[in-house]
Design a protein around this nucleic acid. Structure first.
Lengths: 221, 221
DNA sequence: ATCCGGTGTACGGGAAACCGTAAAAATTAG
DNA sequence: CTAATTTTTACGGTTTCCCGTACACCGGAT
């Protein structure tokens, strides 16, 4: 049974609903943060006071609003929180609909649940919390199929460099210089061409413009 | 004083919060729809029963979830609702942060208020409703500056055709044929090249990839 | 009718991207 | 350590794109 929970969520409307949901589950020791930095601070403080949180529920994207923040999104918050407190349970509560992104959360950040903001989200949030209390993981139904059919192409850090440069207007023939500066293994123009071809081939594309559109649509860059 | 209000919102968590907010404003005749089609249906029915709604609060993006829908987003819902009932007051309640999109809502759909889902959104929603009751319009503070510095480039339908084709992988030299089929005035390769140059020039870009990235980021395509 | 500015089109030289091939370098296997 | 395999790089020909110039067309104003 969770008792001490912290929510990181920048939408006041959502925060209020989560508040209600937790109340319905008789979870009382709940704190809220509108900023990731604030959430991390509270986590630290709780540890120092020997009364650590048991569960973090966080959104993924946080809007900037002038206040300078060290941590700008939920993924980074989770990473920092895990370092601070490895046993912390993690629920991501987000409207992110890209299976690629969600899959990454489970694989790389090892979160315990993903709840998709949708037409049943408060119900699903309850289900997720209950699942965690039983030592299980939880994934919103919408994603249970999607995650199996994984990405047609896994973008490596190397791929990301290239695609990002393209999207920023760097000429293909100038990318080798950039790669060299950033210490990438294969940094010849041929390699860049070959890799781009492989990626486009894998995705069934023919033009760079198409690839950029795809990456933007899927939040890859 | 509003009395009969309808909410179109596909996030249960947000819907619950809006519910509370309206209750706090002593607005009782409130209905909710998780789908745009449902919202439109209720609007129609209310008119037939001579008890039309006074205010529509709607999100912009609605997730698809298997159920086939005629209207798939808030903008289309507003358009349909206006046709049905021109005097209906319109509040858009969304997390959309692109000034270009919000600007369009006011200019082309003539909405009365835009409330940005953020750290003060329930408060702002109240302010918006009160503003409307006083015959005023409302825009979330975050946008009040941004809307003045409008887009560096206004994309015409013609521009959109070209950029969309690019993003779909059509070769530049094949775009003229497409334009001709779709009855665009200028359909020569030269014209396409020239127009693309003008757009990129206006935005300070040099490469198509950059332009596609920009369009995706700003929800232009 | 003439003169315009704006807009669409045609063409051509040069740059960049595309694509296949083959050499060179680095890894791995035996 | 050498052979074999994979990865990276180099190079050349072709296509596409880029960009400047020049011409044709059209509606409006003189």
């Amino acid at each position: 049974m969770f008792n001490k929970v912290i929510i990181a969520e920048d939408h006041q409307s959502v925060k209020i609903s989560v508040e209600h949901t937790l109340k319905e589950l008789d979870i009382s020791g709940t704190q809220y943060a509108y900023y990731c930095d604030d959430a991390l601070l509270r986590l630290k403080k709780a540890i120092q006071e020997n009364d650590a949180f048991e569960l973090l529920i966080t959104d993924l994207s946080f809007a900037e609003d002038g206040r300078e923040q060290k941590i700008s999104d939920g993924a980074a918050l989770i990473e920092a929180a895990k370092k601070l407190q490895p046993d912390l349970k993690l629920i991501v509560f987000s409207a992110e609909s890209s299976p690629a992104v969600v899959s990454k959360l489970f694989q790389e950040l090892d979160i315990h649940a993903y709840v998709y903001k949708g037409r049943r989200d408060t119900i699903e949030l309850k289900e997720a919390i209950e699942a965690l209390q039983n030592g299980k993981k939880y994934l919103s139904p919408e994603f249970r199929m999607a995650l199996r059919t994984k990405n047609a192409h896994d973008f490596s850090a190397y791929d990301l460099m290239i695609v990002t440069q393209l999207a920023e207007g760097t000429r293909q023939k100038d990318i080798p210089a950039y790669l060299q500066q950033n210490g990438a293994k294969a940094s010849s123009l041929s390699s860049v061409e070959k890799r781009l071809n492989q990626i486009k081939e894998a995705l069934g594309f023919t033009k760079n413009e198409q690839l950029i559109a795809y990456c933007k649509d899927n939040k890859i860059i």
